[in-house]
Write a protein that binds this DNA or RNA. Sequence first.
DNA 1: TTGACGGTATGACGGATGTCCAACAATCTG
DNA 2: CAGATTGTTGGACATCCGTCATACCGTCAA
Lengths: 112, 112
Amino acid sequence: MPDIADVTMIDLLRAVADPIRLRIVQTLADGLRHGKCGTHWDFGVHKSTMTHHFRILRQAGLTRTVVAGRTHSIELRRDELDARFPGLIDALAATAGVSSPATAHGPAPRSG
Amino acid sequence: MPDIADVTMIDLLRAVADPIRLRIVQTLADGLRHGKCGTHWDFGVHKSTMTHHFRILRQAGLTRTVVAGRTHSIELRRDELDARFPGLIDALAATAGVSSPATAHGPAPRSG
DNA sequence: TTGACGGTATGACGGATGTCCAACAATCTG
DNA sequence: CAGATTGTTGGACATCCGTCATACCGTCAA
């Protein structure tokens, strides 16, 4: 896990410029710890592929890994990232890329 | 140039996840129009390589090209981008990735 | 028309990237 | 110990990406 001062914006952007990894970061943006278990992340890719993505995120300085027994969990390095790249995580976690744009008729927000 | 509604966050992130293109976007963040002329952008790469990067940015929905005679200029689609991805351009344009992180103090706020 | 300038289009090439597979390691359970 | 669970490591492979070189096109100036 790199020192946050050594993390460049390019490192960070390259890490999140992948559909799977962006989804992971957006999920982790809730501030909670999430397991690496395949049951939680169902992207339809192989187990080792997920390991690969988790490694990219960690090496990019985005996440921290917590090992407990035989289960591993990851969490965003939120405070450090917010200090180094103000507003970036918030912007990435925004639902703009997930929800449908105004013109398209996506799933109605179901106000209830 | 794609409709802003068709632009995904992944498109956008892939476009800026390159040193040259991120610098271009950060420069364009001043809201002004900048020429594509090689004299303005000296990245030490070939002319056609710059054309390639400009194309990526345009196809990703980040920039707009204005042709005047034999000179081409580009500008950020700032308003549309801010509406679709709130805070993202601001976060990318921040100097965090440019200034030196060595001290970890960040740029002095210069109260003046 | 000829030439210079600004930029694009196309093809080629080496390196990076995402994916799978098989093997391995560490931990809990019996 | 044996077995199951969780995750990593390494290799292999196809694809994508950034770069260059060349050729080409449109505009302005003689």
